[in-house]
Amino acid sequence: MIKEKNKEQNNKRKKRHGSIPGFGLSMGITLTMLSMLVLIPLASILLYGLSLSPSEFFAIVCSDSVRYALRTSILCSFIAATINCVFGMIIAWTLVRYNFFHRRLIDGLIELPFALPTAVAGITLSKMYSNTGIPGKWLSAIGIDVSYTHLGIVVALIFVGIPFVVRTVQPVLQKFDYQYEEAAHILGAGRIITFIKVMLPELMPALLTGFGLAFARGMGEYGSVIYISGNSAKDHTQVVSYVIMQKLNYMDYAGATAVALVMLITSFVILMVINLIQIKQSKRTNNV
């Protein structure tokens, strides 16, 4: 009797999880490690954040330094992600559609910002675009200061964000069917019309995902930004990550937690939007 019951249970389990053994073990290890290393530490921020009263929380979040930092981070990440979308699109297009001598080299170099430590990128960009560096000297001669301004933050965020756009657009472009373009061409559409009306709608989900990833990275970026931004409260060139770090250094844990909560919410929203776009995209491609 008991044996039969066990057998039945076993069969049920097999039906649910397929016939490959090891479900319980891998589930256990995954959940334990995920909780210990990621979820519980994150929950500690939440736990401490909940002990703040709403008025305390809003007092911190609405203080001048935090407000300006949020504005700077959002604005600079947005501009950098937009610029990255334009150049990322051009680079992805060039890499997929054209064959030229140094194609593989450019393809490999695109991921340099993933491999290069952010602090190294930060000190180098800051030196390059200051008025003693090489493009910086020329730019300041015509009146454009890059280092220690908002423009500098944008430059650093373009650097860290470019691989995200290229690497999300590239595979979609690779799978793109030439038929549609040919059809549009035969029906008399010009090259620009074909791109805007035929290709762009297909590439939009990938482009938006790339934008979202670059934007999210820009919002949280610390190492590559803090040297070139100058972190001046007066010029509003502090970014949110810097403000959190500053509060941490002053042992202002309540302040750091409150700002971190705002950032956590922001990045969750971005992550959800990206997921929605991807679900929508996979539905569309499955229907076709």
Partner: peptide, 13 residues
């Protein structure tokens, strides 16, 4: 998708 500074903060908290 979250700032590395927040990761540091999490372990401090």
């Amino acid at each position: 998708s979250i700032s590395p500074v927040i990761a540091g903060l999490a372990f401090i908290m």
